[in-house]
Every structure is written in C-alpha cells, then in structure tokens.
Amino acid sequence: MICTIADGGRLKTFLEFIGVIASFAARVITSAWRSPYEFEQTWMQVGEIGARSLPLVAASGLALGVVMTLHTHSTLVTFGAAAMIPKVQSLSFFIEIGPLVAALLVAGRVGAGIGAVLANLRASEQIDAIEVLSVDSFKFLVVPRVVACVLVLPLLTTFMDLTALLGGFLAEHALSHLSAQLFIERAFNGFAWSNFVPPTLKTTVFGFLIGTVSCYYGYTTDEGAEGVGRAATNSVVLSSLLVIVADVVLVKIIFLFFPGSAL
C-alpha cells in the first residue's frame, strides 16, 4: 500500500516535471516568434555553441572515422568486401553516427555550459537585473540559446560527417593506398539525398531538446551557487537521454517519409 502511494506520488511529480518542461518548451517556441528578435544574442550564441564546439566535434569525427575504418576493414576484408568500406563509412556516419554523436557531444559540452551559465546568472541576480532593465530575460537569454542550438547542430553534424569521412579515408589510405577520388566515388556511390538531408536536419530537433532542457535547468534553478553544478549535471543527463529517445522516434519518422533512407 505504502509503496503504491509513494509510487503514485512519484508518478505525480514525474508528470508535473514533464508538464513544466513542456510548458517551458512551449514558451520558448511562442516567444521565439514574437518581436523583438534578439539577433545579436543569437549570433553570439552561434559562436559560443557552434564555433567553439567545432574543435571537439571535428576531432571526435576524425578519430571515430579512423577507428570505424580500422574495425570494418578487418571484418570486411575477410569477406572480400574491402571495396565496401567507404560506403559503410559514409552511410553509417551520415545516417546515424554523425547526427547522434554530434548531438551527444553538444549535449555534453553546451548543455553543461548553458545550464551552468544560466544558473550562475540566476544565482548572482543578473537575471533579475535584466528584468529590472525592462528586458525580457527569457527572450534575451533562453530563446537565443535554443535557436542557436537548433541552427548550429546540423552544421556541426555536417562537420562531423565529413571529418569522419576524412578520418576513414586517411586510415583506409594507410591500409590499402586507396586514392581519394576512388574513396569519394565509392563513399557516395548509391548515396541518396534521403541518406543525408533528413538525418542531418533531424539534429535541429536534438538542438531544440538540448537547448530547451539546459536552459530550463539553468534558468529556473533557485538554489544559489550549489544549484549551478546541479543544473549543469542535470542538463547533460536529461538532454543526452532525450536526444537518444528522440533519435529512435525520428529514425522511424524519417523512414516513414523517406523509405529509401533505410539501410
């Protein structure tokens, strides 16, 4: 009995939590469309979230590309299918690994950053100070960050895809002296737009989730300095989780609309 009551309570808080986040997300969406638009802030966040994440994303892409090729090389060579390596590489990165890993990296780096920065602004009364200056702090701080996440993730994903391809090529070149031209030709042979455009654009959803979740934790924290760390951690955990869950759903949706994109 106690157990069910406790669970009922927990379920209630869980539902409440979902409701709060959902209305936060709805607020992001509605206020994003109302003027005044914070272009300058958005541009700054594009730099902060996008350009500053590029080294991390590019380096990870390169490393993953090399590693993937080393793995698939030994496997595919035993099947005499070494010629498939570029295609395996490009398809796996463009369809799934690129978008997902880029999103998870951004969730880690940017999610924590946004959570901590906003929580700190809140704790040091800077958000109140913005409010006092008759500036809508939500539009000033939250919307630009979410919009920047949405805009930047497809770009970062493209970078990841291509650096992974480059890493794959370097590894393959070292192993079998495959020429760059042949590698590209094989990588994109039989490659459809639906293998690239929908998976890349789906990261806008990831961006929205990462931005919204981390802004939620940062913006609504009310616990002073110790809340900063918690906001950062929670942002990363929940946004990574949501990215993965959303990926499952999006893959299914993309497959519905673009049957050709399935492997």
């Binding site: 040091s124 009364e125 800077q126 100070a129 409010e131 006092v132 200056l133 008759s134 500036v135 809508d136």
Partner: peptide, 23 residues
C-alpha cells in the same frame, strides 16, 4: 505582467545589494 510591467519598470532604477553587473 510582460509589456505593462516593463513599461512601469522603465521609470525605475534599481541597485542590487550584490550590484548584479553583467559579468
């Protein structure tokens, strides 16, 4: 709320105890 609140606040200046400068 919202714009009405902003309009009213525009007449007011506020110094926080912590100063709350944008760091």
């Amino acid at each position: 709320e919202g714009d009405d609140l902003s309009r009213l606040r525009r007449k007011m200046g506020f110094l926080f105890q912590s100063a709350a400068l944008f760091d």
